[in-house]
């Protein structure tokens, strides 16, 4: 294990904790609304953004955040306008973003700079700055307020969008908001977990929580807890094993998910009581 200055260690731990919280809380919506491919899209939008940033000689992270913000803003309205499933629009934008990224990369002088753009896809927790922490904290606060205030609307929409609309909920607005918040969660966490692996952090903790609970309230509580624990344990694993941070976090969350599937009470067969009665 390598020795790190304590401030760097604390910043990194906080970064892992906040990214775990942000991604897995938005994951609760993403999993239920079948939007799992949004993670791919956002990470590649960020990649294209980073390449763009390098091309015009600005910080690649600024480009990455700018692009994923932009995509999360247009995704909802575009899916509505085109009258297509969100997943189709996500697929379309995903390939479009990769195409853009390659074009931008082509214009970046030297391989060193291209490698910087590619780093967006892998992530590094030690590059987390206090600004990142500040932004993630604000976002975490916003997402908590969003869930608490609009809990009843969100439950209604996640159960059935048409029924929610028929009881007087403006479902479009909430749908866009969820897409937008997920986009922000991804773009803020990308530096830590890396673009390629961030969607695992969105999906795995919620999917794990799904194995145990039938009450959505509990999923909202346990999904971030599982996300945070996965991030912290993954961080620790990365320190002791020298694995890349994003990969370690995903490895842990995948292990947790596998264990959850094996031990899920939802999947256990009920034991018949009839025999006992007859005996």
């Amino acid at each position: 294990m390598i020795d790190f200055p304590s401030t760097l260690l604390i910043t990194s731990i906080l970064g892992a904790l906040l990214a775990g919280f942000a991604c897995s809380t938005t994951g609760a919506f993403v999993v239920r609304m079948n939007l799992s491919s949004i993670g791919y899209l956002m990470s590649h939008a960020a990649f294209a953004g980073a390449a763009f940033g390098l091309m015009i000689s600005i910080d690649p992270i600024i480009g990455a955040i700018f692009f994923s913000f932009g995509i999360s803003l247009v995704l909802g309205p575009l899916a509505e306008k085109a009258r297509l499933e969100s997943n189709i629009v996500i697929g379309f934008l995903f390939s479009f973003m990769i195409a853009l990224a390659f074009i931008f990369l082509n214009f970046i002088p030297g391989t060193a700079a291209s490698a910087r753009a590619l780093r967006i896809l892998w992530g590094s927790i030690f590059s987390v700055s206090t600004t990142d922490l500040f932004l993630l904290s604000i976002f975490s606060f916003i997402i908590i307020v969003f869930v608490v205030i609009f809990y009843k609307e969100l439950i209604a929409i996640m159960f059935n969008r048409k029924l929610a609309e028929s009881s007087g909920v403006n479902t479009r607005l909430y749908y866009f908001a969820v897409l937008f918040l997920t986009g922000i969660a991804v773009s803020l966490s990308i530096r830590i977990v890396g673009g390629l692996l961030v969607f695992a952090l969105i999906i795995n903790p919620t999917s794990t929580a799904y194995q145990f609970f039938f009450d959505f309230k509990k999923i909202f509580i346990f999904s971030p807890i599982i996300g945070i624990v996965s991030c912290l344990v993954g961080f620790w694993l990365s320190l002791i094993s020298d694995f890349p941070i994003g990969a370690s976090i995903v490895l842990i969350s995948a292990i947790v998910f596998t264990i959850a599937i094996i031990f899920s009470p939802k999947r256990k067969k009920g034991k018949s009581k009839i025999k006992k009665v007859l005996a």
Partner: peptide
């Protein structure tokens, strides 16, 4: 409004009381 019977995921994480309450969302 009661829509036509639709397929429900058996693992769906909603309790009946919360679904009934969701009818009051707009109100």
């Amino acid at each position: 409004y009661v829509i036509q019977n639709f397929e429900m995921d058996p693992l769906a994480p909603f309790l009946c009381k919360d679904i009934v309450m969701s009818g009051r969302t707009g109100k």
